[in-house]
Structure formats: C-alpha cells, structure tokens
C-alpha cells in the first residue's frame, strides 16, 4: 500500500510542475494567484499522504498550518496587492501582462 501511495504522491508533484505553466503564462494576476492556491491544496494532500507513507504524524500538523494559512495569501492578494496594481490595458488584468 505504501508503494501505491508513493506513486500518487509522485503524480501530484508532477501535477504541480505541469500547473506551473499557468504561473508562467498568466495572463492576469488572478490566474497566477489561482495557480498558487491550487498548488497549496496539492501540497496539503502530498503532506497528508507522506504522513501515512513515512508514518510521521507530525506532518499532519504541517498540513494543518498550510490549510490554516491558505486563506491569508488570497485575502492579502485581493485586499492589498490586486486593488493597487494599475489597470494598464483596460481589461482589468492587473497590469501584469508580459511587456
């Protein structure tokens, strides 16, 4: 069963790496933020599975802290960063398009 869960962990990490393309491409700041949120969920699941594979219950606490702080990044983004970024090209993408 451990080998089986290990394969799932590997697939989830590969999933994150593939998803990095969205951080690369954007186009808007919100898209990049969404990708980061998705990765934080995947990281939580990887930690949960690793806690079972390595039989290390302390990793559940790491996942708990990640889950608790997941809200912080997105709220800071909406409340501080995104409302301040210039609307450059009029479509509200947050002025983060490639030059």
């Amino acid at each position: 069963m451990t080998e089986f869960l290990s394969i799932l962990v590997l697939l989830l990490l590969a999933n994150i790496v593939v998803g990095l393309a969205r951080v690369l491409r954007g186009p808007s700041a919100a898209d990049r933020m969404l990708a980061a949120e998705m990765f934080s969920t995947s990281a939580v699941v990887i930690l949960l599975l690793l806690a079972f594979i390595l039989d290390a219950p302390a990793l559940l606490d790491v996942a708990l802290v990640l889950a608790l702080l997941a809200a912080l990044a997105v709220v800071t983004f909406v409340g501080r960063a995104w409302s301040e970024l210039e609307i450059r090209d009029g479509d509200g993408t947050g002025g983060d398009r490639e030059p």
Partner: peptide, 28 residues
C-alpha cells in the same frame, strides 16, 4: 483531517468569492 478539509473549504470558498467579485468590479 476533517479540520484540515474544513479550513481549506473556508479558504477556498472565501477566496473564490473575493477573486470573482474583485475581478467583476475591475471590469474583467
């Protein structure tokens, strides 16, 4: 595990709502 799931649910629901609202308000 249940607590972790509930926390992610709260973060995800609030985050999605905030991003959607702000994107609309910004005229996206």
């Amino acid at each position: 595990l249940f607590l972790i799931w509930v926390l992610m649910l709260i973060a995800s629901a609030t985050g999605a709502g905030l991003i959607g609202r702000t994107a609309l308000a910004r005229g996206m």
